[in-house]
Write a protein that binds this DNA or RNA. Structure first.
Lengths: 150, 150
DNA sequence: CTTGACCCTATACAGACTATAGGGTGTGTG
DNA sequence: CACACACCCTATAGTCTGTATAGGGTCAAG
């Protein structure tokens, strides 16, 4: 099958497939006479594996490591276990961070409801000051990734 | 004060301050004879404002909008309110997504404990298959941002 | 007069793609 | 047969929020 079909079958964009190939996650497929990429079921499975991992928010490096386990069926899966554990810890940590952040935002939002002049706005005021009880982000570590990439 | 002092007083790196200037978030300061940037208290406040917003994970565009409200004390703060509301919704959405993701990972992790050969590993197996009950990420939308930027 | 801490600019890199430019291929219709 | 159109190819640049590097200037202390 050509790249377009692989794309529709896996729900992955054509450009992204080519990107994964460049990154060494997908093996280079055979080519037609017209230099078109020609894929088989192997590629469907491997790409699905990658997309499942991405849906679990693993990095491409993590996926590379899992694929290495997968490609070495004589080894143990201990590495894979550790990787998933660590990833799970990252996810849990992110959730806690975001929950702290949510509280701060709710507190911030409560400081203003409406149509007052900006000079009196509690929100703008609170953001101008050194972090206090209401802002609670004491050491102000940045928590990334709220805004999904389009 | 020079840029290094501004950096230590706000907990922001020197290069980041210059970056904010390039991005138009911080006004261009005066310069010394040796072409060093010279800042005043105004800049400390404005940079603190920016860092508080970043600690709440707002994008630079969102911060630009809040600064515009802040710089127009005759206008109302309605825009600021809306912005915070929308941002809060993003954060809440992210938390829910990550919680779903956490469940999936816990389920995945439960499929293997240990030293079995990779060929029998339930984790690698589950990742290879089409998403099922245990993987639960039915429509497999990607949830970004678990891995903090270093 | 040299050392070291600080400052300057410009450019490239990070991740995980997406977008664009500029071209080739293959099928169906007029 | 000519043309449109969907699909394929490569290469390059952009996204976002910074960080890292190269290559240089300034200034105070020893």
């Amino acid at each position: 099958m050509k790249i377009g079909e692989l794309a529709t079958r896996t729900g992955c964009r054509v450009v992204t497939i080519r990107y994964y190939e460049r990154e060494g996650l997908l093996p280079e497929p055979a080519r037609s006479e017209a230099n078109y990429r020609l894929y088989g079921e192997v590629h469907v499975e491997r790409l699905a594996f990658i997309r499942h991992c991405r849906a679990l928010d693993m990095t491409l490096d993590e996926i590379r490591a899992l694929l290495a386990c997968h490609d070495d069926p004589e080894g143990t899966c201990h590495q894979a276990d550790i990787l998933i554990d660590e990833h799970l810890m990252h996810v849990k940590a992110r959730i806690s961070q975001l929950q702290v952040l949510e509280e701060s935002l709710v507190a911030l939002r409560a400081r203003c409801q409406g149509q007052r002049p900006a000079a009196e706005c509690g929100i703008l005021d609170a953001l101008s000051r050194p972090p206090q009880e209401t802002l609670s982000s004491e050491d102000a570590e940045h928590v990334p990734g709220t805004h999904p990439r389009v």
